[in-house]
Amino acid sequence: MLRLPRFTYHRPTSAAEAVKIAADHGPASQYVAGGTDLYPNMKRRVQTPTEVIALSGCADLVGVSGSAAEGITVGAMTTLTSLEKDPALQAAHPALVHAASVISTPLLRNMGTIGGNLLLDTRCNYYDQSHEWRESISFCMKCSGDTCWVAPSSPRCWAVQSSDTVPLLCAVGAEVSLIGPEGERRIPVADLYQDDGIAFTTKKPGELLTHLHLPAVDGTWRASYRKLRRRDTFDFPVLGIGAWLRFDGDVCTAAEIRIGGAGSYAIPATKTAELLIGEKLVAGDAAAEERITAAAQEAFKPTRAMDNTDHFASWRKKMAPVFVARALRDCLG
């Protein structure tokens, strides 16, 4: 049986207490939310904290509050199942509820949290492997080694952004709160990430993600999440498209498209967005269809599919425009 390495277990009852324990132990410590990402990583020895700080006792990190009009706030320890079943979120943020509902499996969603999903480790077929397997390749850059085996001449790690909620939350302009030894801050979700397979977040050491803040719902925007994966359960996205369009009447006034599962962060499809702004986009309208298809073609270039996930990389890249177009069509009235 594959087992966890040994560690000391902490169970604080508040976010503040958790942050203090983390500060006391420094880099040897790690927060654990649902455990569905960290524990497999620990069993495979790609993460080996000796101090595990369980957040399950922090009541201040759980729950959904606020209103659609003012903006809903979700505690980081809210499970994905609770999020998916929350009536207020279902009404106000159907795209987020959909994105959450296609994460892994019902069992893992009962355990996994939104905070954990936001901070899901980047994934790679050379990294998500046992200690013994990784020994066979002399380890990789992301853990204990020097080489990125996806692109051995590359100076950087190409592990893949694999959270389903992140591309969407970046696109809709959600925000997160963090607390740390230096106090609290609130930043756009998009700013939580950077384009690096190893240092993929901008979260500071010891900092704890406490809440997700969703944008106010005012009827001017619509969002969608489209996921490409082999099976309709279990699988991480090999493409995860978050799309957001703001309208003034039929005219698109702002657009944000993020391509997940195809690089180390949710890549903005900037050119696609630019081509849509100022255009009249109505569902079923042939001209709009054409505009969307043409704009979506521009998602091909920024998509960085490499051979470190399921499916042929070349096909995933070719699928980006198809899935971007579909996500954009979802956003039309």
Binding site: L2, Y9, R11, T36, A54, L107, N110, M111
Partner: peptide
Amino acid sequence: ELGECGACTVLVDGTPVLSCLVLALE
């Protein structure tokens, strides 16, 4: 033992979870 098969499902307070990824302490 990695949360990828469901064989270890048990109910904790009535909710199905994967016992391979739940600490006994939890």
